[in-house]
């Protein structure tokens, strides 16, 4: 009698465990299709080199871009 009760208890708990496997919990908390899901990036001029000075960063980049034109570096 006692062993029968144990077996019934075991079967009931096992069925609960098996049913628990049917539940699907969401793995992504806030996924919106078409929206960037990664970490936020900083802007290039916000790094240690420019410390938020966008104007200097832009002028430095413009100068570098201009240096690619060897025609302007040569005398006419």
């Amino acid at each position: 009698m006692n062993s029968l009760r144990h077996a019934a208890l075991l079967a009931a708990s096992l069925s609960l465990v098996l049913l628990g496997g049917c539940k699907e919990s969401p793995q992504v908390l806030d996924k919106k299709a078409g929206e960037y899901q990664g970490k936020v990036d900083t802007r290039p001029w916000e790094g240690p080199a420019y410390k938020g000075d966008k104007a200097t960063w832009e002028s430095d980049l413009r100068a570098r871009s201009g240096n690619q034109n060897e025609l302007r570096r040569m005398p006419d």
């Binding site: 960037y36 936020v40 990036d41 900083t42 802007r43 916000e46 790094g47 938020g52």
Partner: peptide, 8 residues
């Protein structure tokens, strides 16, 4: 995707 100017 771009952060509002964080403190570095």
């Amino acid at each position: 995707a771009t952060a509002p100017v964080p403190e570095k």
